[in-house]
Design a protein around this nucleic acid. Structure first.
Length: 274
DNA sequence: AAGCTGTCCAACCGCATACTC
DNA sequence: TGAGTATGCGGTTGGACAGCT
């Protein structure tokens, strides 16, 4: 915020630009925007931008609201279940971030996009393969996603949450379009893995009084303390089921060597790559 | 302590699509 | 129906920060 004030007074801040503010939002701006959205709703962003007195574009207001000010924005680390969902949905839809975000309650497309770029692509880089290659996709499906499943199941009570391997590999679970929502539907119920996925917004609209019925609620609330490596250095598995932070590949039973073995075994058996 | 490097994430930009007149 | 405008989406950038040397 102070940086913004500094920037806005910088010599490079030309007079013709001063009509439109850019850069980080101030608390005052946030308060104004929240107030206006509460009155006018979260639409007609250009109108909000003009009538609020904010010297921001409608696009900027919209982005600020969706990614930060919206009351249901979820903060904090991406959970194991969310990681699993991201991997799974990305394998179906690719970089359709907004679509993927619909299935992760409270997460924004921006956040998911950032997660993918900073974490997932980093792993691809470590393995010296392209993130879009069949090799990497196979590794995700055959190594990392099963590891995530194991860890999710290990974290949770078997009676309440049991992820199935078929959630990873069953092509019949392709998610093209959401199905109609039934009351109380779980958007990601590991027990009923044959169900279709439903965007979180639709679930909350259909079942607003059962907020605990999400996978995150079922599992994560019972797994306090999960702290992905790379964020704080928690001494345990990182996001990818391997030990260590940046040095994640060096010192455990699921080291880079393990993954490379997996890759090599794939390379030498049944896979052909682009 | 200072400089360097890598990571994370908020915010911007450009383009595509939807909407309105 | 076409032009202008608004909105949404994905890609990219830049600053803050932490860790390392």
């Amino acid at each position: 915020m102070e940086d913004y004030e500094r920037n806005s007074n910088s010599p490079t801040h030309h007079e013709e630009d001063s009509d439109v503010r850019k850069g980080p939002w101030t608390e005052e701006e946030d308060a104004i925007l929240v107030n206006f959205v509460s009155i006018h709703g979260d639409a007609r962003w250009n109108h909000i931008a003009r009538s609020s007195g904010l010297k921001r574009t409608g696009k900027s207001c919209r982005l600020r609201w969706l990614n930060y000010l919206r009351p249901d924005v979820r903060r904090g680390n991406i959970t194991l279940e969310e990681q699993f969902m991201i991997l799974k949905l990305h394998s179906l839809w690719g970089n359709r971030w907004s679509k993927i975000a619909q299935y992760l309650p409270g997460r924004t497309d921006n956040e998911i996009k950032n997660y993918w770029r900073t974490r997932v692509q980093k792993q691809a880089k470590h393995l010296r393969c392209d993130v879009n290659s069949n090799l990497f996709k196979d590794t995700m499906r055959n190594v990392w996603m099963p590891r995530l499943v194991e860890r999710i199941n290990a974290q949770s009570s078997p009676s309440t949450c049991e992820l199935s391997e078929s959630m990873i590999t069953d092509p019949g679970q392709r998610v093209d379009e959401p199905s109609p929502v039934e009351p109380g539907f779980l958007q990601f119920n590991p027990i009923h893995h044959d169900q279709q996925l439903v965007p979180a917004a639709e679930v909350s609209a259909a079942s607003s009084n059962s907020p605990a019925e999400t996978l995150s609620d079922v599992v994560v609330n019972g797994s306090a303390g999960y702290d992905p490596i790379g964020q704080t250095g928690f001494a345990g598995f990182n996001d990818w089921g391997c030990v260590g932070g940046d040095n994640m590949w060096t010192n455990d039973d699921e080291s880079l060597w393990f993954l490379q073995d997996q890759l090599l075994s794939h390379e030498t058996t049944s896979y052909s790559y682009n």
